[in-house]
Amino acid sequence: MSTRRTEEPGGLRYGWTTGACATAATTAAYTALLTGSFPDPVEILLPKGQRPAFALAREELGADAAMAGIVKDAGDDPDVTHGAVIRSTVRHGAPGTGVVFRAGPGVGTVTKPGLPLPVGEPAINPVPRQMISQHVAEVAARHGGTGDVVVEISVDNGEELARRTWNPRLGILGGLSILGTTGVVVPYSCSAWIDSIRRGIDVARAAGYQHVAGCTGSTSERVATELYGLPEDALLDMGDFAGAVLKYLRRHPVPRLTIAGGVGKLSKLADGHLDLHSGRSQVNHDLLADLTREAGGDPELVEQVRAANTALGALHLCQPAGLPLGDLIASRARDVATEVLREAPVEVDVVVIDRAGTIVGRA
């Protein structure tokens, strides 16, 4: 845990990325390897100038290796790695080799092209590698080392934790990724999820796929798979982040995109919202009423739809009258998606489902 806390204006605590923790653990371990003692707490410099200090949770010093471990503190962000122990074991390397990275237990290995690391490399992302290398060089200069080291990063229980992330689908096998571009976890920024969406598109493009599906959850993933026979790594777990999928595909197009999701979330997309989270956008029942009127609904039905508690409730009101509200939501959502994609060569179709996974609208 850091000895210094930072907060957002709303009072939520920032946390530290796995990359920052790995950097601090490496700094402590290499210092101990050269001097015989661990700095505790250990202070590091982050890319934007912050200098957090981390208490050591584990330390071991041997004749030719040193290990330090730090408990990941994600602050008030609901991060899957919060509380995990990030370890770095540092050994002397061959002269002239610089910093060589290894994946220890709980850290994954890249097995598919399209990620910012070559196939076969430990899933330690470029910025954490830069941070670790910079601190290794500083410790070497301070204590008379060569800076030629083998750095093995591991995460306690990381393989189990990784099953709750995108890693298996992205082809990162055996554990978690060591992530972070600033070293700081901003509470509820959802940057890791959005980054995973982008990496998913990169992997799909590298595999040569012509069709991907952005899905709001596991039920819509199943429906998209049954409809189109898409492989798992062509399925983008977009959750609430429709905008992240569309904006990244605008710059990195795939010929065909299916957007699949529940009627509530896709009615928000139909209303122009690109973040579909319930805390950041709401179903517009006036829009649903207008669509019902356009479909030929009588005034009484239009007002019932306007007063409905949910989008699914509105849909159920229209079904006995034979009004295709689901198709109209899908069509409007497709229009919004196409507008965000601008001139990108991406064909879009939309599939709207209910909670059971029954298709209730398509465009």
Rank of each mutant, 00 (worst) to 15 (best):
D195Q: 12
T219R: 11
E152G: 07
T146G: 05
P299K: 05
G36A: 05
S37A: 08
I178H: 00
H285T: 06
C318R: 05
A344V: 08
E7I: 09
G106W: 12
P253C: 03
L46I: 15
G296E: 02
K48L: 14
H252M: 06
R13P: 06
P255E: 12
G69L: 02
K268N: 11
P52W: 13
I329H: 09
G174L: 04
K48Q: 12
P231R: 02
A307H: 10
H285I: 00
A137M: 07
N167V: 03
A204E: 07
I178N: 00
E343S: 15
E159G: 06
V351Y: 12
L249M: 09
E7G: 10
G322S: 05
R164F: 01
G75L: 02
V107H: 07
R362V: 08
R4I: 09
T181H: 05
C215H: 03
L246K: 07
V212T: 00
R129Y: 14
Q319W: 14
L257H: 08
L312T: 11
L170S: 00
Q134L: 14
R164K: 13
V212Q: 00
T18S: 08
I153F: 10
P41Y: 04
V348D: 07
V283W: 02
I178Y: 01
D349I: 10
L235Y: 01
L46V: 15
I329D: 07
R4F: 07
S278V: 04
S37I: 06
E294G: 03
S278I: 01
G171A: 04
P299D: 13
V71T: 15
T17V: 02
P9H: 04
P187I: 02
V263E: 10
E226Q: 15
A63I: 10
V203Y: 07
